[in-house]
Amino acid sequence: MRRLASHLTVFCLVLLWLIPTLGLLVTSIRPYEDVVRTGWWTTLFDPAKWASLTLDNYVQVIAQEGLGQAFWNSLVITIPASLIPLAISALAAYAFAWMPFRGRQVLLMVAVGLMVLPGQMTFIPLLTVYNKVGLSGTFLGIWLVHTAYGLPLQIYLLRNFFRALPHELLDSAFMDGASRWKIFRHIVLPLSVPALASLLILQFLWVWNDLLVALIFLGTSPEVAPVNVKLVGLVGAYGQDWQLLTAGAFVSMALPLIVFLSLQKHFVQGILAGSRRG
């Protein structure tokens, strides 16, 4: 009896969680005439309708509405915006973990404090400076912004991870005359691949899924706008053309979903490490 109740609860919850996404998927391959006339669920139970399913909506959003270009822009934004902060934070975390120096704890405490700083506190001054030096609307500009927002958490988590590396290993390498850089490059980094991978995935998803930062520092022009900005534009431009909006939304979700499904383990590890902070 108890097992049945548990299974029933789980089944209902899973169903509840999947239905909205299922509706999106089904709608994105239905023709316009069907979408405006009947609910998407009718397609599921009516095999006669299956023949009319189509990929035309995807063709339209990708080719005609510029979502293909936006997808490319998102890649150009996301890849450097994930790698740059990781490199910078690994260097800093190494110093914080293994090099005693005056003011270390204070600096680290500042980083911990900055972890939850709302981005809103930085938008206006940054944008003002960006407009003056011509960085607004450029990829370089947004890479640096995302770098800054990602750094505090990454520094803190990597520093904790580095500190947990076996002491003796690093000390003996140092005794043998290895330089700090050599130790970092040949011992610390190779041992930290899982942690680095987790953080890379988290930052990748965070940047890919961002809207606000892109709206502010890149704007809506098609040469630079990422998929999410473009998608919001489609929501404004297409109102209730649901077959296009849902196809667009799925295009924006495809890559994160692939990353998520194939690297779920690392993703979960990253999240668990993040939850143990402080």
């Binding site: 899973v14 969680w17 909205p20 899924n209 919001v232 939304a249 979700m253 994160p256 979903l257 998520f260």
Partner: peptide, 26 residues
């Protein structure tokens, strides 16, 4: 498997989720 289903929306952006739910509330 059940956990993956619940966890899945985390990979989706707020914008994507916005479109999904706008349609739920249509």
């Amino acid at each position: 498997l059940a956990k993956s289903a619940i966890f899945l929306p985390m990979a989706i952006s707020f914008v994507g989720a916005g479109v999904i739910w706008k349609f739920v509330y249509a």
